[in-house]
Design a protein around this nucleic acid. Structure first.
Ligand code: MN
Ligand code: MN
Ligand code: ZN
Ligand code: ZN
Lengths: 147, 147
DNA sequence: TAAAAAATGAAAATGATTTTCAAAATCAAA
DNA sequence: TTTGATTTTGAAAATCATTTTCATTTTTTA
């Protein structure tokens, strides 16, 4: 997420006009500095730890805004908890999720995406978006497993 | 799901022994007769409509049992609501989900599964299970779209 | 038949997220 | 500026699907 996100954020038009606000900017800034999946609680705690006063309501509201604006993406893995990740560009990626340590690895595999399109065509289905997650053990956890 | 499921169900050993019970059997039977994804509420209402008295607790408990026994699988799509589907065999499948009408189409694509394994190998990751869902418009909804 | 174990259902608890609403902050004229 | 309209905020309440509790009933075992 680049430096101009905050300005970009306020330039973007929604149904309703946005007033600039310190609290919201705070959330956007901390969001900007994340580069991986995080839970709302994590972000909330991080901001709190810095002695900024903020409410969960505002954190949720701002993250939902960022999502509508296309700057954030919701990720809901097996545990069912809402997470967000910054959207860095038009490139799509999918996830490997370690069921032991929770680590999340991102990957891209164009060959799979091609085949997905083929499956869709076969069913005369028009794909808007997809999600694919592979759950299992990461390299580190496999090593520990063997000891 | 075949006829012997109910017996199979009671034969399976869990941590705790199961007593046979009419209410639970009821849920298992209605579950058996489903062959697609359903919400807990749907199953509950179906049983209720037949004038059987049953509680949500028992429906939830039984479905969780069936899941532990490997006879049911949890499916959580974009809407975040818990659904179950009967497990018919060892064959795995993935889903196309229509965002307009909610229809769910199942598909298998061994070529994708192979590539998933390759991705995993590349990351020294051991895959236990995965989920893949393609969201978009089904054939029917596309037609209506065009009119 | 009696005692032990498990199942049931109503109601309460849970817990993450959203909503409400009154007060505070921001903005846009005048 | 001042004013008045609009938006934002946060605490508390509402939501809502799912789980848990617990007193009672049912099933199994002895
Ligand atoms: Mn990611
Ligand atoms: Mn299915
Ligand atoms: Zn791991
Ligand atoms: Zn459709």
């Amino acid at each position: 997420m680049n430096r101009q996100t905050l300005e970009k954020f306020y330039r973007l038009k929604l149904k309703k006009p946005l007033k600039s606000s310190a609290k919201r900017s705070l959330v956007v800034e901390y969001f900007m500095n994340r580069d991986r999946h995080f839970s709302v609680e994590e972000l909330y705690n991080e901001i709190r730890k810095m002695n900024f006063k903020i409410s969960y309501s505002t954190v949720y509201r701002t993250l939902n805004l960022l999502t509508k604006l296309g700057l954030a993406r919701e990720c809901i893995f097996k545990d069912g908890m809402l997470r967000f990740e910054p959207v860095h560009g038009p490139k799509h990626h999918d996830h490997l999720v370690c069921e032991r340590c929770g680590k999340i690895i991102e990957f891209e595999e164009p060959k799979i995406e091609k085949l997905q399109e083929e499956v869709a065509r076969r069913h005369k289905f028009l794909v808007d978006w997809h999600r694919m997650e592979l759950y299992g053990l990461c390299a580190e956890c496999r090593k520990k497993e063997k000891l």
